[in-house]
Amino acid sequence: MPKINGNEIRPGITVEHDGGLWAAVKVSHVKPGKGGAFAQVELKNLRDGRKLNERFRSEDKVEQVRLETKDQQFLYETDGMLVFMDSETFEQTELPADLLGDRRPFLQDGMTASIEYYGEEALSVQLPQKVICKVVDTEPVQKGQTAANSYKPAILDNGVRIMVPPFVGPGEDIVVHTELMEYSERA
């Protein structure tokens, strides 16, 4: 594994630190009036989800970890575990459902998701950036109302509540951004 300087850490980079695998979430470079500059890094443990704030000076060396990403098909959920299948080898992988947090309802049967591996160990699930959902309930469409920064609440077919433009009515398919959990466009 390559070693990088502490000031080269960027958001999204995975490093080995204190015997664990950590993903850099936020990085801010600080130059205090006294002393040397450092990078203030918010790290998230990829195995148990703990967060840690750490300071790295430019002379500090950290191991950068390369994770392998495989696209796998979601099969089903059982006892709080999500079961995915590799479409080439047909091997099945189980991951805890709480890895997705509040984005879990966007995972649909048969959907292809990206799973990150460290060696043989599955660490995380990345959903597609955008998914299509059906609006189940919302206020009726208002005639003559424009979409000038006015949004109304809507409930989707997966139970998630988001804000949609006033021209979207019940029964319509819309595209939802899974990271931001917000309306993107009509389907």
Rank of each mutant, 00 (worst) to 15 (best):
T146W: 04
A187V: 05
K44D: 04
G35A: 11
D79W: 08
I155G: 02
V15Q: 01
E16I: 03
E179C: 08
R186Y: 03
F106C: 02
I115D: 00
L107C: 01
K51E: 12
A37E: 05
K143S: 06
V65F: 04
W22L: 03
T69P: 01
V65M: 11
G49R: 14
H17Y: 14
G101S: 01
V27Q: 00
P153I: 05
I132P: 00
P2A: 15
G19V: 08
E59W: 07
S184R: 02
V25T: 04
E88N: 14
S114A: 12
D79I: 08
R186F: 09
L75Q: 11
E182Q: 15
R161P: 00
V176C: 04
K130D: 13
L99H: 00
L95A: 03
M81D: 02
F106P: 00
T89S: 15
L67M: 11
E88Q: 15
R57V: 06
K3H: 15
G144S: 14
P128A: 05
P140C: 03
E139G: 08
S184T: 07
M85V: 12
V30D: 03
V135T: 10
Y76W: 09
I162N: 02
V136S: 08
A147T: 15
L52Q: 09
I162A: 11
N149H: 07
G12D: 11
A148E: 14
I155E: 15
V136C: 08
E94I: 00
G20K: 01
F56C: 07
S184V: 08
K34I: 11
G6I: 08
E172C: 03
D109P: 09
A37T: 14
A23R: 13
G33H: 03
M111E: 12
L75C: 07
N45V: 02
L107M: 10
K143H: 01
E59C: 00
Y151S: 07
D18A: 11
L180R: 14
Y76I: 09
K61C: 01
K130V: 14
K152M: 08
E54C: 13
A39Q: 04
A147M: 09
Q64K: 14
P32E: 07
F106K: 01
D109L: 10
S58R: 15
D48W: 05
L99S: 00
G35D: 10
V27I: 06
